[in-house]
Simulated assay, not measured.
Amino acid sequence: MARAIVTVKNNAVVAISRDVAAYFGRRDDYVLQAIDSLDPAEFASLNFQEWHRDHPTVRGRTVRTVDMTRDGFTLLAMGFTGAKALQVAKTSAHNSGKDRSLTP
């Protein structure tokens, strides 16, 4: 069974960078670098929230982690390749079509 890559945090559904990395089979630092390369800064500030968690094995050290909205996750995933990235693109296109039909 596939591991969930979204969680509810402060009443919002977010994807966590380390879970996104695991889902796509990438290293966490690669995903963080991809997030850092996204532009413009205003979009990033609205869709990505950085925080630090304790390192799992090194006491006193923290690890950078990023929470992202659905839009942030979609934009990030568009930069990846492979079957899982294609599935995300298809799902995103399908869902955005539904969202538009609900808008007056």
Rank of each mutant, 00 (worst) to 15 (best):
A2H: 11
R3W: 01
V6K: 03
T7W: 00
T7V: 14
V8A: 09
V8K: 02
K9A: 11
K9T: 13
K9F: 11
K9C: 05
N11Y: 02
N11D: 13
V13S: 10
V13Y: 02
V14H: 09
A15C: 11
I16R: 02
I16T: 06
I16L: 14
R18T: 14
D19T: 08
D19A: 08
D19L: 05
D19Q: 11
V20I: 15
V20Y: 04
A21P: 07
Y23Q: 10
Y23C: 10
F24Y: 13
F24D: 03
G25D: 13
R26Y: 12
R26L: 15
R26W: 05
R26K: 15
R27W: 04
R27M: 09
R27Y: 09
D28K: 00
D28W: 00
D29T: 12
V31D: 05
I35T: 06
D36R: 09
D36N: 10
S37T: 08
L38I: 15
L38E: 10
L38M: 14
L38R: 03
D39F: 01
D39R: 07
P40T: 06
P40Y: 01
P40C: 09
A41R: 07
E42W: 00
F43H: 04
A44L: 11
A44C: 15
A44T: 11
A44H: 02
S45F: 01
S45W: 00
L46V: 02
F48P: 03
Q49A: 13
H52S: 14
H52T: 12
H52G: 02
H52L: 12
D54Y: 07
H55M: 06
H55V: 11
P56Y: 06
V58R: 09
V58K: 05
V58I: 13
V58D: 08
G60C: 09
G60E: 08
R61Q: 15
R64M: 08
T65Y: 02
V66D: 04
M68N: 11
M68V: 13
T69K: 06
T69C: 04
R70P: 01
R70Y: 07
R70K: 09
R70G: 06
D71V: 03
G72I: 07
L75K: 02
L75V: 15
L76S: 03
L76D: 04
M78D: 10
G79N: 09
F80D: 03
T81Y: 03
T81N: 14
G82E: 10
K84E: 12
K84C: 01
A85Q: 08
L86K: 11
V88H: 04
V88L: 02
V88M: 15
A89H: 11
K90I: 13
T91P: 01
T91N: 14
S92I: 02
S92F: 13
H94L: 14
S96Q: 10
G97N: 07
G97V: 05
K98H: 07
S101H: 01
L102C: 01
T103Q: 00
P104L: 00
